[in-house]
């Protein structure tokens, strides 16, 4: 009897495969048991795969591929709940709405949004004001600061928009400079241009 012989009881690569299959079934069992607090999945987009995470109170984040997805999920575990599992069914609706938006067939999002990852009252007010900007329209940073209750806090409004965890759905791309410049964008200026082109604000 050698230890190496006992080792093969562990099932080798077959056990790895079976473990993967069993683990994939856990999200469904967790949902049935009422233990799934946050579900996440990856959504297709012209920019590559987006991380979308949905909690019990709504959409928590949409993240561009240049972000560190693991860091975002760790932040969710810390600040919302560590009961975070990859699951497609909870994220079906947001993924479908994003598909329709990118295809040009959707002008507003119906999913509920949860600002649990947003810190600070002013930042929340800026993002709520931003969420009200309609498809195809833009406001300036000063407009949004004013709407959020502090017309002088233009730079703070810019920072708030830069920290938006739910871009596209909370349309921070619809906020531009007073002089006509586009300003910045967390996802990179090219993405802001693409989104504003989809919405007809910029010519093709």
């Amino acid at each position: 009897m050698k230890a190496s012989e006992l080792k093969r009881l562990g099932g080798g690569r077959e056990a790895e495969r079976k473990a993967r299959v069993a683990a994939a079934e856990l999200a469904g069992a967790a949902r049935d048991a009422g233990l799934l607090d946050v579900a996440y999945a990856f959504a297709d987009s012209p920019f590559g795969p987006l991380l979308v995470a949905v909690g019990r109170h709504g959409l928590l984040c949409v993240q561009y591929p240049n972000h560190d997805f693991d860091a975002t999920l760790s932040e969710i575990a810390r600040e919302v709940s560590p009961r975070v599992l990859e699951s497609r069914s909870e994220t079906d609706e947001i993924r479908r709405e994003l598909d329709e938006y990118f295809a040009g067939g959707r002008r507003s999002f119906d999913v509920r949004v949860d600002l649990a990852l947003v810190h600070g009252e002013f930042v929340k007010r800026v993002l709520r004001a931003t969420a009200r900007i309609p498809f195809g329209r833009v406001l300036t940073y000063r407009d949004v600061a004013t709407e959020a209750g502090n017309a002088l806090a233009v730079r703070a409004a810019g920072n708030a928009l830069g920290s938006n965890p739910i871009p596209i759905v909370v349309p921070c791309h619809r906020v531009v400079r007073t002089g006509g410049g586009l300003g910045g964008y967390t996802g990179g200026l090219d993405r802001k241009k693409t989104l504003l082109t989809i919405e007809g604000v910029l010519g093709r």
């Binding site: 009881l9 562990g10 099932g11 056990a15 790895e16 079976k18 473990a19 993967r20 069993a22 683990a23 856990l26 946050v38 996440y40 693991d70 999920l73 760790s74 969710i76 575990a77 810390r78 560590p82 009961r83 975070v84 599992l85 990859e86």
Partner: peptide
Amino acid sequence: KPIPPFQAFLDAHRTAVYRFLMV
């Protein structure tokens, strides 16, 4: 050490748990 998202915990330990239970 911080508690990782459950999915990361599951991915890290699923095979060891499965091997253990198989036997």
